[in-house]
Design a protein around this nucleic acid. Sequence first.
DNA 1: AATGGAAACGGACAATTGTCCGCAACCATC
DNA 2: GATGGTTGCGGACAATTGTCCGTTTCCATT
Lengths: 216, 216
Amino acid sequence: MKQPNDEQDTLPDTKESAAPGSRREERDTEYRRRILATASDLIERRGTECVTMYQIAQEAGVGQGTLYRRYAHLGEVCSDLMQTTVDTFLQSLGESVAEADPSTPAMRQLSDIISLSIDFIDQKASLLHTIHSMYVEKKSHTIYQKPFFRTMHDLLQPLLARAVEQGEIRDIDIPLTVNTLLVAVSPNQYLYHRDVLGYDKKRFMEGICRIFVKGL
Amino acid sequence: MKQPNDEQDTLPDTKESAAPGSRREERDTEYRRRILATASDLIERRGTECVTMYQIAQEAGVGQGTLYRRYAHLGEVCSDLMQTTVDTFLQSLGESVAEADPSTPAMRQLSDIISLSIDFIDQKASLLHTIHSMYVEKKSHTIYQKPFFRTMHDLLQPLLARAVEQGEIRDIDIPLTVNTLLVAVSPNQYLYHRDVLGYDKKRFMEGICRIFVKGL
DNA sequence: AATGGAAACGGACAATTGTCCGCAACCATC
DNA sequence: GATGGTTGCGGACAATTGTCCGTTTCCATT
């Protein structure tokens, strides 16, 4: 299935080990192959949602500890499954940026990237959703049905509608814009910028307003 | 702790039951009170992260089934705990919109709402984060460290930087804008619009570009 | 107040996750 | 090819989640 002397492994050595050039590494590769094959198989049979780490370990015939040492959770397994696909996509994106005529406006390139990304997401929707969910959520869309979200939505929607009516802005997709604003100022987003990137309230606020107020 | 004859319960009857005017309802109220009190206590003692549904049921002295029938997960418990606070906030938001001079530009009001929301999130950061996490994520910031995200980030950042340099846009907060764009076109966001709201690729794409390309 | 059916309780259980550690395989050195 | 230290395996385990169902409580009717 793969030349043993392949010096360049397809898989990007998630983190540790991978010592010299043989035996231990062979087993490692074999295990990883088996895990991914099993995962792929299970996903195909049972559907993306119903696969568990336990199942994969069982069917792949490896201990759970072994599985967990390689992949912290299902999302990482899926990530690895998509590795090639994602890499290819990212590379083609990178190339399309690099190769572009330097005189092409950057914003034009931006919209190309957005377009390509959405195409990609659209095609690989199911798996990507699982990956993203594993890293990011548990019960996908539920948040949108929650009172807080709904109320905020109902508050913002008419506001934007009025802004359009009165000619302050135009050509916007109101629901989409509202939803985008809501994820943009979600607690996670704010806390990431505040606690990890060191933003203060003012800077965050201004950046958001630049996009959603001044921009529109 | 609360007058038994309070006809207007603070808690908004999450969903079912609540029949006529007594007994069954009393117990219901009492249980809910006990659950929330316990949850509040546990959170204060152990910190938001380490509280489990099991613990709450145990300490509140109710069966797990009972707890789960009222609250599907921790996020809902926290939501209910925040209910009053959130309601107050939402109401004040609503009022500030309603009371505003009708001649106030809608976009001006929008920026006010954004500002107030960020203040609110900043104050209640910890609990809100938990609530949001429960509905939405598992391991908070991890996604930002993942290769796919990083690569996309590294691709977009220089692009926007160039757009600024070349005078296509200005006054934007580049990292924040990149991150906002990335959550805006995340698989979840796309799938919600596509599968729940019935958007097609084109409409989604155009809405996003209106915000992040034409807008900027 | 006895009775019957509906609604809700509680806790046992099955399913998962994630961790821990005794044991075995492996590589380097002699 | 024996020896010893290191690395990694496997699967038992503790902790949780979420569900299911026999039992209890409650209300309405008689």
